[in-house]
């Protein structure tokens, strides 16, 4: 160790020009893996998260390629209504004779769009508000956090029901409503991270170097708060999928004939369907559970992988 320090000392004295000394100094600071590499390695250890990622990838692929892989037109009404699963209709048909499997695949598009769309909106709003609130503090913080509190104290579902009944149910509206109501968690989370990050010396060093405030906020603080934001976003996706399903189940979400897992479940409100036609409600129910579970597992995995405090 003493030798090493002497050698770096000499290297410093000669301006680091000496190749051999420089060689030893670099070898001593052994090559460490990048942050992204570490996250991937740690994520892979989380078996459930990997399984979740595989399922979500397949689901997404299915949703994107739906027009080419569905066996039937999901809106095509046929005479074979309420048909049991068969070779022709793998998951049977619904009350008006539409192919359940095709509808199920198309419905994945709705769920994923709602999940991603609304989370994109809510995380963007939440992140910006949280950053501003945490960094500037004082009155700004006060104002933003009180607004957040107000939004949080609304009974969410009831508010959504009221808004939907005012603006009318549609896929776009569901995305917008969930997005504009769901930002509170992200805002608080980001604010918390910013409060601790802004005390870090590298932020002070940035100010001392003459960097402007927006630059410090978005280019130096935000990247450091990205891990919790990302984890929060994955859980947000799961929440949005469930919310959409509930809304559609209640008839206030995506409107028929567009298929969504939620409105497909509506059929299960009838007792006969519930007891004797499980192919109508079991598949969408399972899809909701599987997709939400997968997203949650991914979130769990990400949290463990990205948390610098957890053990390598």
């Amino acid at each position: 160790m003493a030798m090493l320090q002497m050698s770096t000392n000499k290297a410093a004295g000669s301006g680091g020009g000496d190749g051999q000394l420089a060689e030893t100094a670099v070898k001593s600071s052994h090559k460490e893996e990048s942050y992204a590499g570490m996250v991937v390695r740690r994520f892979k250890k989380h078996k459930l998260a990997v399984a979740g990622l595989v399922i979500m990838t397949l689901l997404s692929l299915g949703a994107i390629m739906a027009p080419w892989i569905v066996p039937h037109d999901p809106y095509q009404v046929t005479e074979a209504f309420e048909a049991e699963p068969s070779a022709e209709h793998l998951l049977g048909t619904d009350q008006v004779g539409r192919d359940v499997l095709s509808r199920l695949i198309y419905a994945a598009r709705v769920s994923l769009m709602v999940g991603l769309g609304s989370v994109l909106i809510s995380v963007t709003i939440g992140t910006v508000l949280g950053l501003v609130s945490g960094y500037f503090g004082g009155l700004v913080d006060m104002a933003v956090m009180r607004v957040t509190d107000i939004f949080m104290s609304f009974p969410q579902l009831m508010l959504i029901l009221v808004v939907v009944s005012v603006v009318g149910p549609s896929l776009t509206n569901v995305i917008l409503i969930l997005g504009f109501l769901g930002w509170t968690g992200a805002a608080r989370l980001v604010r918390g991270s910013v409060l601790s990050i802004k005390q870090m010396d590298y932020v002070k060093a940035g100010v001392a170097l003459g960097l402007g405030t927006p630059r410090i906020l978005f280019k130096h603080i935000l990247p450091n708060a990205l891990a919790p934001i990302l984890v929060n976003a994955t859980f947000g996706i799961a929440g949005a999928i469930v919310s959409e399903a509930s809304l559609s189940f209640l008839g206030l979400g995506v409107q028929p004939p567009t298929a969504s897992w939620g409105n497909m479940l509506t059929d299960a409100q009838s007792l006969t369907v519930l007891t004797s036609q499980p192919w109508l409600w079991l598949p969408p129910g399972i899809m909701i559970v599987v997709s939400v579970l997968s997203v949650n597992f991914i979130g769990d995995g990400l949290r463990d992988a990205m948390d610098p405090k957890s053990l390598k």
Partner: peptide, 15 residues
């Protein structure tokens, strides 16, 4: 310019 006390935390870890 300014140099700070803690070199371990004075550089942004993500860049």
């Amino acid at each position: 310019s300014m140099i700070f006390q803690e070199p371990m935390t004075s550089l942004n870890p993500v860049f």
